[in-house]
Amino acid sequence: MIPPLLAAAADPVGSGIFLGWAPITISIGNFIVIVAMVVLFVAALFVPFLHDRDE
Protein backbone atom coordinates (compact mmCIF):
# COMPACT_ATOMS: atom_id res chain seq x y z
CA MET A 1 0.00 0.00 0.00
CA ILE A 2 1.30 3.46 -0.90
CA PRO A 3 1.81 5.78 2.12
CA PRO A 4 -0.65 8.73 2.05
CA LEU A 5 2.16 11.32 2.01
CA LEU A 6 3.81 9.71 -1.02
CA ALA A 7 0.46 9.39 -2.75
CA ALA A 8 -0.26 13.08 -2.16
CA ALA A 9 3.19 14.06 -3.47
CA ALA A 10 2.75 11.94 -6.57
CA ASP A 11 -0.63 13.53 -7.29
CA PRO A 12 -0.30 17.06 -5.90
CA VAL A 13 -3.29 18.56 -7.65
CA GLY A 14 -5.63 15.57 -7.61
CA SER A 15 -6.88 13.55 -10.53
CA GLY A 16 -9.50 16.14 -11.38
CA ILE A 17 -12.93 15.78 -12.93
CA PHE A 18 -13.20 15.00 -16.63
CA LEU A 19 -16.15 15.53 -18.94
CA GLY A 20 -16.67 13.34 -21.97
CA TRP A 21 -18.79 13.33 -25.09
CA ALA A 22 -18.06 10.36 -27.35
CA PRO A 23 -14.41 10.83 -28.51
CA ILE A 24 -13.99 14.17 -26.68
CA THR A 25 -12.57 14.27 -23.16
CA ILE A 26 -11.81 17.51 -21.32
CA SER A 27 -11.02 18.43 -17.73
CA ILE A 28 -13.58 20.55 -15.91
CA GLY A 29 -10.95 23.29 -15.43
CA ASN A 30 -10.15 23.59 -19.12
CA PHE A 31 -13.87 23.43 -19.96
CA ILE A 32 -14.64 26.33 -17.58
CA VAL A 33 -11.83 28.45 -19.08
CA ILE A 34 -13.06 27.85 -22.65
CA VAL A 35 -16.66 28.67 -21.69
CA ALA A 36 -15.44 31.83 -19.92
CA MET A 37 -13.55 32.92 -23.06
CA VAL A 38 -16.60 32.41 -25.28
CA VAL A 39 -18.84 34.29 -22.83
CA LEU A 40 -16.35 37.18 -22.62
CA PHE A 41 -16.03 37.34 -26.42
CA VAL A 42 -19.80 37.49 -26.96
CA ALA A 43 -20.25 39.97 -24.09
CA ALA A 44 -17.50 42.20 -25.52
CA LEU A 45 -19.47 42.48 -28.76
CA PHE A 46 -22.80 43.43 -27.20
CA VAL A 47 -22.23 45.05 -23.78
CA PRO A 48 -22.22 48.87 -24.12
CA PHE A 49 -18.86 50.48 -23.45
CA LEU A 50 -18.31 52.94 -20.61
CA HIS A 51 -18.41 56.63 -21.50
CA ASP A 52 -17.24 59.76 -19.77
CA ARG A 53 -19.91 61.77 -17.94
CA ASP A 54 -19.36 64.81 -20.16
CA GLU A 55 -19.70 62.79 -23.34
Partner: peptide, 8 residues
Protein backbone atom coordinates in the same frame (compact mmCIF):
# COMPACT_ATOMS: atom_id res chain seq x y z
CA UNK B 1 -12.12 51.90 -30.18
CA UNK B 2 -14.83 52.57 -27.55
CA UNK B 3 -15.86 48.91 -27.50
CA UNK B 4 -15.06 46.10 -25.07
CA UNK B 5 -13.60 43.98 -27.87
CA UNK B 6 -10.70 46.47 -28.13
CA UNK B 7 -9.87 46.05 -24.41
CA UNK B 8 -8.41 42.56 -24.45
Amino acid sequence: VASWIYVF
